[in-house]
């Protein structure tokens, strides 16, 4: 490959391209720091005095702080629930080389969310759980559980069977083998599964839109309601968007090295 002569300009060109590509995200962050007059100014202002007024309004005059808290509760609990269910299941699937669970969880991943939404709504209403955290957390676990399972399986498949067998000879039951021998070995996979589950659960809109109640409304649903409120306050809207975008972006970049190789890996395995 004769890429040495080109590398002199390829880096700056790609860097400028990257910045242009990300300009909508930067625009969001900038707009959130503009005063209400500046944010709707036309032509748009590139130079302005930053202000935290939009954030003050967002957290002071609306329930957005509580909504953000709800988002953390739902994403955190559904991640935990998904992992607690997926880890032993992935271990059993890998150990016994089961095939059918992959098909079932693939279907769960593919089906349109709306398909489950009406039955859930009716189910949870009958059980008196509608609008509560439990219903939301269970619904989001339908996203996190198969996701964690898919992420963890390759890690488990790469764990030598002899370790598990050695554990049996050393006097362990299957549960002890999983917790004391296998989990420490697949620790990186657990970290990735946790982060990805959290991000996917955090980002998910549809279930919370239909299933959350007034007190359990997540940040994403709340910010959608801002749009609906006639005179849209762009500054506050962009502040809300920035707050919502922050956790997924921060978490993603903690595992980005893995993501680039991991996604490619999954694709090659097809």
């Amino acid at each position: 490959m004769s890429d040495t002569p080109r590398s002199r300009w390829s880096t700056p060109v790609f860097t400028i391209g990257a910045l242009l590509f990300m300009s909508p995200i930067l625009w969001m962050a900038l707009s959130s720091l503009k005063s209400p007059q500046e944010v709707t100014a036309y032509p748009p202002k590139l130079l302005f005095t930053p202000t935290a007024a939009n954030y003050a309004e967002l957290f002071g005059r609306t329930d957005f702080l509580h909504n953000t808290f709800n988002s953390f509760v739902v994403a955190g609990a559904s991640t935990l629930l998904g992992l607690v269910i997926a880890i032993p299941a992935a271990f059993a699937i890998s150990w016994h080389r089961m095939v059918w669970p992959a098909t079932v969880s693939l279907f769960a991943r593919m089906a349109p969310g709306t398909l489950f939404l009406l039955p859930w709504f009716i189910m949870f209403s009958k059980l008196g759980m509608a609008g509560g955290y439990t219903a939301l957390i269970l619904a989001h676990a339908v996203i996190t559980m198969p996701l964690a399972l898919w992420i963890l399986l390759p890690y488990l498949d790469a764990t030598p069977r002899e370790i598990v067998e050695s554990g049996q000879i050393d006097g362990c039951r299957s549960g002890t083998i999983l917790i004391r021998l296998v989990l420490p070995m697949i620790y990186p996979g657990i970290v990735v599964a946790t982060i990805m589950s959290f991000v996917f659960s955090w980002n998910y809109f549809l279930f919370a839109l239909a299933l959350s109640g007034f007190d359990t409304k997540t940040a994403i649903v709340a910010s959608f309601n801002f749009i609906g409120e006639g005179t849209t306050n762009w500054g506050a809207l962009m502040a809300a968007a920035t707050v919502i975008a922050l956790p997924p972006l921060v978490l993603t970049f903690t595992v980005q090295r893995w993501l680039v190789s991991g996604l490619s890996f999954g694709a090659v395995k097809g």
Partner: peptide, 20 residues
């Protein structure tokens, strides 16, 4: 009788040492 209750010890081909 499961392996854990047989009072046997085994040396594996790949040794199966616990890496952590």
């Amino acid at each position: 009788v499961p392996a854990r209750d047989r009072n046997i010890a085994m040396v594996f081909q790949d040794y199966a040492l616990y890496p952590h």
